[in-house]
């Protein structure tokens, strides 16, 4: 994925987060940054993907998170991006995008549980949610990711 497109998506992510931050008083339902991270990991080399992940995640934390420990999510997300990148060589190339779609749902759940576990380990507070809500959010985000992925596959030239 080209840096130019990553920056454009990042601006869109910031805009969505801004609007959401404004109208939901900090209670973020949508996490468009996860979609961007998986899209980056889908086509970028692993090192580059990890750098983009830490940059995006920490900068979003610095801008939007208030009164929380920043960088916790970045630790989990970097690990997940690394794992995803390592799957690539074991998946048939033509099935890669389908795998990415399913992996995104897993990514969402693991990001939640990973951040929660890390918070527990470090003795930090963590806002938990019921598993029903978690699954609901995961489904919504996966659908959104699927829509974005379809658009990327349809209109983007650097699909792989």
């Amino acid at each position: 994925m080209k840096s130019r497109w990553i920056l454009i998506y990042f601006v869109i992510v910031i805009a969505i987060t801004f609007v959401q931050h404004k109208f939901t008083a900090g209670n973020h339902f949508l996490e468009p940054s996860l979609i961007l991270l998986v899209l980056i990991a889908r086509t970028s080399p692993v090192t580059q993907a990890i750098f983009w992940t830490i940059a995006i995640s920490v900068s979003l934390d610095l801008v939007f998170a208030a009164g929380q420990v920043k960088g916790l999510g970045a630790m989990v997300q970097m690990a997940l991006v690394y794992i995803m990148a390592h799957f690539k060589k074991h998946i048939i190339p033509s099935h890669w995008d389908l795998f990415v779609l399913f992996f995104f749902a897993l990514f969402y759940l693991l990001n939640y549980y990973g951040t929660w576990g890390l918070s527990e380990l470090l003795g930090l507070s963590f806002d938990t949610m019921s598993w029903v809500e978690l699954v609901y959010r995961a489904v919504i985000h996966t659908l959104m990711f699927g829509a974005v992925l379809l658009m990327v596959l349809r209109f983007s030239k650097d699909t792989k």
Binding site: T47, I50, M75, M78, A85
Partner: peptide
């Protein structure tokens, strides 16, 4: 990839610990 991950994870860990 792994080295980058470990270095950045460590950096993040320091960052979090510092906070």
């Amino acid at each position: 990839g792994l080295t980058t991950l470990l270095v950045l994870e460590f950096a993040c860990f320091l960052f979090v610990s510092y906070q």
